[in-house]
């Protein structure tokens, strides 16, 4: 393919790095560092979690489930915030990269939320004696999972992904109302669930437990950044391939 005249020169720096083609170029250099970083963080975090942290005086060894439960619960919300911010980008600036980010985040969010619920159930059984309790936070997380799945289903039912992005952005933003409900629901119907652990109360746990938790949260967040970047690259390539497919079909038909 011959190089055309570069139309990007007139753009400002943000437009330049956010242009899908340019994003494809520079984000390549993000993948490896992020991958290495997350491997290191997971290694250190898991070592802390199993070999260098005490058992909790109340929960015993089951406190170790927290090191994977809390990061996933945190990501289940962070991914939705990512989607909501992208949705604003889609609707207000009509930015193609925002569409891509919003689409890439949904399956990741569904996976992290599933893991949060799964580990939560396994943590709840030994500590409270039940896998599932219809308390505010757990219910809200379940609703969040249903919303992710609904959004994924909606993406798949549209043929025209550009139009789909704008419409889905609306439902994502309407759903954002749900995030505060998740946060505050714990005050509403709190039954068995513990109050928010990383909260304004400050460090309500000893540093020996807080350190592995923080490292694991960083590890999972880095993993999300890695997977999100790669999924965005995948989506840009998919659109590129679709465009080429259409072009070649048009050529064949004359």
């Amino acid at each position: 393919m011959t190089q055309k005249i570069d139309p990007l020169k007139k753009m400002n720096w943000f437009d330049r790095i956010a242009h899908p083609g340019q994003f494809l170029k520079w984000s390549r250099y993000l993948i490896l560092p992020l991958a290495i970083l997350s491997v290191i963080l997971f290694g250190v975090g898991l070592w802390f979690a199993f070999f260098n942290s005490p058992e909790d005086y109340q929960m015993g060894d089951t406190v170790r489930i927290m090191y994977i439960h809390v990061p996933n619960a945190w990501l289940s919300q962070l991914v939705y915030v990512t989607m909501a911010v992208s949705a604003i980008g889609t609707l207000v600036w009509r930015h193609p990269l925002a569409d891509v980010a919003m689409k890439a985040a949904a399956p990741l969010g569904a996976a992290f939320t599933t893991m949060a619920l799964f580990t939560g159930a396994l943590w709840g059984r030994p500590t409270w004696g039940t896998y599932w309790e219809w308390d505010g936070r757990m219910t809200a997380t379940l609703i969040l999972l249903l919303m992710y799945l609904g959004i994924i289903a909606l993406w798949r039912s549209f043929d025209d992904q550009l139009r789909a992005a704008k419409l889905i952005a609306i439902i994502v933003l309407v759903g954002t109302i749900n995030i505060p409900i998740i946060k505050f629901s714990v005050d509403w119907w709190n039954t068995l669930h513990q109050p928010s652990i990383v909260s304004s109360e400050g460090l309500s746990m000893p540093a020996s437990i807080y350190t592995p938790l923080l490292i694991m949260m960083l590890a999972f967040t880095t993993l999300f950044a890695l997977l999100q970047t790669n999924a965005m690259r995948t989506e840009i390539l998919r659109r590129k391939a679709d465009r080429q497919l259409r072009k070649s079909l048009n050529k064949e038909n004359g």
Partner: peptide, 10 residues
Amino acid sequence: LIAPVLILPL
């Protein structure tokens, strides 16, 4: 079918 699935959680 998809509209109810989207709306129910909300």
